[in-house]
């Protein structure tokens, strides 16, 4: 675009400076409106209706969808399972990854190889991770049961019995989310100023104290970020792992909110009800995000 054309289009330079940024934002906003805001409002709108399978008939039911969800024992169970599953996965994953990052930060021979090995699960998609663990935990041909039989003489139906289905799921999810957290912790550890560490050594702090009183507070912004990210991934991206590994079973034992949403929306085509579930999840995520922005910046120690 020649300069003259630009001037013709946007007038003088001051006007151009005002309009031009908005013009650049248009493509982004188009995408966001089309793929995020419109579906979100659509879901909000649909959540007040009972909609027939192909969407040809709809009745306004007010808040009935929400009411029936909160009086549905299965839905409340799913809320409960989501909390337990997300809580366990996030807590274990955060502490384990911090610990692993500390180890990987040591200058030992072959640390690069260990790092690569630990990062490998990150390159695998959730669905593939689920399928891998599905194979490994297969009661008949799975390696886990093969080893268990040889070593301890026990056989477990990992994916079809309580409580092992939940254990398997939590284990696989941690395995999958661990590398992401480790990468971030490693980066954070490397930015811990060496003067502080040296000073603490001179002052005679034990290594236990150094880790929990100095390093952990110093990397707290990353911890906070990782907690939020892990909550989001354990709540939403867990769908693929659950679908591939347990299909929410046995019974509704491993059905979390996202899997319940999938069942109601895509298996049973209850569009109104599924939209209501969607709105509830949206609100939950909103709360998490608001917490992140209000408390995150204030409470966490930034250098």
């Amino acid at each position: 675009m020649g300069r003259s054309v630009r001037t013709a289009l946007f007038g003088g330079s001051s006007v151009r400076r005002k309009i031009f940024p908005y013009l650049l934002l248009i493509p982004t906003y188009l995408v966001i409106i089309l793929f995020i805001y419109m579906p979100a409002f659509d879901a909000l709108y649909n959540s007040f209706f009972r909609v027939s399978v192909f969407g040809r008939r709809r009745i306004f039911v007010g808040l009935q969808n929400f009411l029936s969800l909160f009086t549905d024992k299965d839905y409340l169970y799913a809320v409960n399972f989501t909390l337990v599953y997300t809580g366990t996965t996030v807590v274990i994953s955060i502490f384990l990854s911090f610990f692993l990052a500390l180890l990987l930060d040591q200058k030992v021979p072959g640390s690069k190889i260990y790092r690569t090995l630990i990062f490998a699960p990150y390159a695998v998609s959730y669905a593939v991770a689920g399928a891998l663990w599905g194979f490994l935990l297969n009661p008949v041909v799975g390696h886990v049961n093969y080893l268990m039989r040889i070593l301890f003489g026990i056989q477990t139906h990992w994916l079809t019995t309580r409580p092992f289905a939940a254990y398997s799921l939590i284990f696989a999810s941690i395995w999958k989310t661990l590398p992401f957290n480790v990468i971030f912790y490693l980066a954070a550890l490397q930015s811990v100023p060496s003067e502080v560490m040296e000073a603490s050594i001179i002052d005679g702090a034990s290594s236990w104290k150094r880790v929990w009183k100095i390093i952990f507070p110093l990397v707290s912004p990353i911890t906070f970020y990782l907690v939020i990210m892990s909550i989001i991934s354990a709540t939403f991206q867990s769908f693929a792992i659950i679908d591939v590994m347990t299909r929410g079973g046995p019974g509704i034992y491993t059905t979390n909110l996202v899997y319940k949403l999938y069942l109601d929306g895509f298996r049973f085509q209850k569009i109104g009800l599924a939209s209501a579930e969607n709105v509830i999840l949206f609100v939950m995520m909103m709360i998490v995000t608001i917490l992140y922005f209000t408390y995150g910046q204030r409470r966490v120690h930034y250098q």
Binding site: T160, T161, R162, G249, P250, G251, I252, Y253
Partner: peptide
């Protein structure tokens, strides 16, 4: 399916 699974797990 759900009820059968609950039966099989002894619930």
């Amino acid at each position: 399916d759900m009820a059968v699974e609950k039966m099989l797990t002894g619930e």
